[in-house]
Amino acid sequence: MIRVDYLIIGHGIAGATLAQELRRRGRSVLVLDTPQPDSASNVAAGLMNPVAGKRYALAWRAEELMPAAVQFYQELETRFGQTFFYEAPILKLFSSVAEQNTVLARSADNPWGNFVQDADAPLPAVRGLKQEFGGLRIQRGGHVLVREVLAALAAEGIREGWLQHETFAWEQLVPAPDGGSGLQYANRVQAQHVVCCEGAAAVQNPYFHWLPLTPNQGEVLNVECHGLSDEYVLNKGAYVVPLGNGQFRVGATYRWPPFAAGITDDAQQELSQRLEAMTSEPFRITEQRAGVRPAVRDRKPLLGTHPARPEVHMFNGFGSKGVMMAPRLANLMADFLENGTELWPEVNIRRYSALYNTVLAAAGAGSSGSR
């Protein structure tokens, strides 16, 4: 029997960061993960952008989340002797004169802090870039090689025994026998806590199916474009992340259910048109990939403990910003699990208690009607 403090389900960016934080605190951890090359974390470009969206809004808690994320990835770089985080200015391009005027008028209130030093400054002359309306130059952003991060941690986990590749079966999770504490899985693992980090698959989770997880599908392109500068990340309806040697990742689309089976021509056309709006240089598509993000109705992650099962927890729902949010929130979640520290209300699953109570009441009514 394997005995651990924490059994973590899933090794995407959520499960990986939480496992690292708990292990750093000296806790025993076992991660069970089904390898999925096209998981959301593996497909993601790893963009860390503090100013996002059509409203040019400062990302939620960016001043706190960004430094924690950078520190986390840089510590992994030292540990593994690899480069994972590439800091680069982000050029967020205006689409029209009206948009330019609106954003520059807002800049008088300095809504972006030190992420934007001078909103009125012209953009640098960038090889291959269309910038007829100008844009914002965003500092302290960049991108993370997410697939490489997860691969390095998974190799370490398999070597050291704290990660196993297998598909988790919820029906094999039962209370510990003989009055023991915690839960037992498959007659071979006993854990004090089980933490669900399985991404979009959580819609099938029997403990947390009541949460408003609304997965969406995204597609990305890898392109070759030797005429475009690789000094900057570009953003205008899509992002363009430099991968080196004239290679870029362009993304991403958003599609709600029903999902397509794999990649689509529509997504390729959409992303190609968005790239053409940013560069006049010819490009060649070298790869197209699709993945499903674990998004949430209010665009905030889901952290907390099941209302009726104190051994079962959720750390999930990071959507398209998991690379930036997960390291700091893993620290927050570990404080909650280990010390009972209160979670931030914006991410605490208690904000959806009414949904749980509704499901519970419906289940009770169904049981009464069946008797």
Rank of each mutant, 00 (worst) to 15 (best):
Y6W: 08
G10N: 11
A14F: 11
G15N: 06
T17S: 15
A19I: 09
R23V: 12
R25L: 13
G26D: 11
R27H: 14
L32P: 01
L32E: 04
T34C: 13
A40M: 03
N42Q: 06
M48N: 02
N49Y: 03
P50H: 03
K54Y: 15
R55D: 10
A62T: 10
E64V: 13
L65S: 01
M66S: 03
P67N: 06
P67C: 09
V70W: 06
Q71R: 12
Q74H: 14
G81W: 08
T83E: 07
P89G: 00
P89L: 02
I90E: 01
A98T: 14
E99M: 09
L104P: 05
R106M: 15
R106Q: 13
P111H: 06
W112I: 07
Q117E: 13
Q117C: 11
D118Y: 12
A121F: 11
L123M: 10
G128H: 06
L129T: 07
Q131R: 13
I138D: 03
I138E: 00
Q139K: 11
G141F: 00
G142Y: 00
V144L: 00
V146Y: 00
L150H: 07
L150N: 04
A155Q: 14
G157K: 03
E160A: 07
W162N: 03
Q172E: 10
S181W: 15
L183P: 01
A191K: 07
C197S: 07
L211M: 08
E219T: 04
V220N: 01
H226S: 07
D230R: 01
D230C: 05
Y232H: 09
L234W: 08
V240Q: 02
V241A: 00
G246P: 09
Q247G: 12
G251E: 02
G251R: 01
P257H: 01
P258K: 02
A260E: 08
A261I: 13
T264D: 12
T264N: 06
D265E: 10
Q268R: 14
Q269P: 04
Q269S: 09
E276Q: 06
A277I: 14
E281Y: 05
G291T: 02
A295N: 02
V296R: 01
V296C: 01
R297M: 10
R297Y: 08
R299D: 05
R299A: 13
K300I: 05
L302S: 01
L303V: 04
G304W: 09
G304I: 11
A308L: 10
E311S: 08
F318H: 03
G319H: 01
K321C: 04
P327L: 14
P327D: 05
P327V: 08
R328W: 14
L329G: 02
N331D: 08
A334W: 07
E338G: 03
N339T: 15
N339I: 12
L343I: 05
W344Y: 11
W344D: 15
V347H: 04
N348W: 14
N357H: 10
V359F: 12
A361V: 15
G364C: 10
S367H: 11
S368E: 07
S368G: 11
